[in-house]
């Protein structure tokens, strides 16, 4: 009997609307970036690349872009260094405080970012670190660790502990087992977590707003404060450039590793 796995007209309509809902703002932003006017307008009555060239005339945006890139890289890497050992302990061992550790790792997800921002501001003010790269990286670490821990824990839980035992019986010490067996097998989860952490950090605004300073301004903060003062199509061209960069990164990444699998931390089939 043929199975009816075609989408009905209603379902297709729904999906199209949904995709339009997600894509429309992006399309508008990209279109606006090509306007030749001095205000936010569609490029239909005159298009130019003037706002794209304007990015080059505003070194602060480029500065912030590099700053955010470094921040995201450091944050994601630190998150991996924290989350992998934590996940190993949680999945492989039973110890008092295990549940508490799990809750602690997930807790930033449950705290509003505004609250986190205020708390971290107080904390780093006490240390005299507000407005530094260190403070921003530490704050972002708090925000992204739950994602990382989640993905690494999931991929570890899917790993048969007997595989590690077999390696041990073959003469591999604890560290050799980790390096040769465990790490390669959870690498998709770690890479997925790293990517997610990178994107989250790169995108983070709320917490950053509390901790940024003129010498340490991540891109989202730079854009936000810029819009606060004036609204010209430069915002649109910077955003469009960001979209382009992200798209290229994702396409390249997808070549090496399918993104849908990366983000669920699944192992290669």
């Amino acid at each position: 009997m043929p199975r009816n796995d075609r989408n009905g007209a209603l379902a297709i309509g729904f999906h199209l609307l949904f995709i339009a809902f997600i894509l429309a703002p992006l399309v508008v932003v990209v279109l606006v970036s090509f306007t030749d006017k001095g205000f936010l307008a569609m490029p239909f009555s005159g298009a130019s690349l003037r706002w794209w060239w304007a990015i080059g005339d505003n070194p602060r945006f480029l500065e912030s872009f590099w700053f955010s890139l470094q921040l995201a890289f450091v944050t994601a890497t630190l998150a991996a260094l924290v989350a992998v050992p934590a996940a190993l302990a949680i999945v492989r061992f039973r110890f008092p405080g295990r549940e508490a550790l799990m809750a602690l790792l997930a807790s930033p997800l449950m705290i509003p970012h505004v609250v986190l921002g205020v708390a971290l501001l107080r904390f780093f003010a006490g240390l005299g670190l507000v407005g530094s790269f260190v403070a921003l990286a530490a704050a972002h670490l708090v925000v992204v660790v739950p994602y990382m821990a989640r993905l690494v824990t999931a991929s570890l839980a899917g790993l048969d502990p007997r595989i590690e035992r077999a390696a041990e019986s073959l003469g591999a010490g604890r560290f050799a087992v980790f390096r040769r067996i465990t790490l390669p097998l959870i690498l998709p989860g770690v890479a997925g977590g790293w990517t997610l952490a990178f994107i989250t950090s790169f995108d983070e605004l709320t917490v950053s707003l509390f901790l940024a300073s003129p010498s340490a301004t991540p891109l989202p903060v730079r854009l936000f404060t810029y819009i606060d003062q004036m609204t010209d199509p430069l915002v649109a061209s910077v955003s469009a450039a960001l979209i382009a960069v992200t798209a290229v990164v994702l396409v390249v990444l997808d070549r090496f590793y399918p993104i849908d699998r990366l983000l669920t931390g699944e192992r290669r089939a």
Partner: peptide, 18 residues
């Protein structure tokens, strides 16, 4: 430790390194 006992192990689930 298990790694120093020189004992071979075969599991029901094979436990090969995938």
């Amino acid at each position: 430790p298990a790694s120093r006992r020189n004992i071979g192990l075969v599991f029901q689930s094979y436990a090969l390194f995938p």
